[in-house]
Write a protein that binds this DNA or RNA. Structure first.
Ligand SMILES: [Mn+2]
Ligand SMILES: [Mn+2]
Ligand SMILES: [Zn+2]
Ligand SMILES: [Zn+2]
Lengths: 138, 138
DNA sequence: AACTATATAGGAATTATTCCTATTTGTCAA
DNA sequence: TTGACAAATAGGAATAATTCCTATATAGTT
């Protein structure tokens, strides 16, 4: 999995720094679609003098070169996703938990011609929202 | 269209104030999924001493009682939508234009059982991203 | 080993959102 | 109609999230 990190970084002329490597690895491990701040708090235990700005900037850079993603949401802190394969999300409106799921049916849905004609569609995802089982029985 | 505004406000014990009425009408007119700040700037021409906080708070309240929506996005300022009917969005990654579109096929897609079992799904939407024609030829 | 363009740390600045509170006002019931 | 009062507003302050600034450090190259 580090393969893509090295390759894409090279392709975009980005230097491989200990900070970038650590940030990428930390995000790879994450299953919770964490915010920049959460990643920072996890990583600062290993690299005590890393700055928040570096973490934040790096996560944005990663998303720009396509090795991570920003999860669609409703404002507030951005949440990052190390999984760049096609997949979809369920989001709990109460506790903001984001759950991955996969669906062949969703993936294969055609983009309406109306849109295809006017725009260049780069990606397509389904967002489900509602309540997780913890929040349902509140 | 004001009907739903009065009815839902009553249902939720919200007072009908000139500010709320103006904010709702202003958003109804909007075709651009505006931010709270944009709505504020439009409305302050008519109600010069309205405060930004009132606009912001009111838009959040409206979304909470379901007479407007927050558009899914990638952080930054929240964007509001007066259209509460089921529809989907195309978003330009360059200029952040958000375009509505409708699709019977998308609307009728089933939620995977895996998700249905675990969660209460309240809504489902498709997000398309890419470049609008203005940004394509940059 | 030296060079240099890029990256980082740390703090400041900016932007977005929310909070605080004195005052005003919509609603309801008398 | 009028008075009572819970709710809403204005205006400013506070907080949260993100981005900018710049002196110093460093990865990648020669
Ligand atoms: Mn995901
Ligand atoms: Mn819309
Ligand atoms: Zn939940
Ligand atoms: Zn565009």
């Amino acid at each position: 999995m580090m393969e893509i990190f090295y390759r894409r970084s090279k392709e975009h002329g980005l230097k491989i720094t200990p900070q970038r490597t650590a940030i990428y690895q930390e995000l790879l491990k994450a299953k919770d679609h964490p915010t920049a701040d959460v990643i920072y708090k996890r990583i600062v235990k290993k690299i005590p003098n890393i700055s928040f700005d570096t973490v934040n900037r790096t996560l944005l850079t990663f998303s720009k070169i396509g090795i991570t993603n920003v999860v669609e949401g409703y404002g507030q802190p951005k949440r990052y996703d190390p999984d760049i394969a096609v997949h979809h999300h369920f989001r709990c409106l109460q506790c903001n938990t984001i759950i991955d799921f996969h669906s062949k049916d969703y993936d294969s849905m055609a983009v309406p011609d109306e849109i295809k004609k006017q725009f260049t569609v780069i990606n397509k995802k389904v967002v489900l929202e509602g309540l997780c089982n913890k929040c349902r029985r509140r």
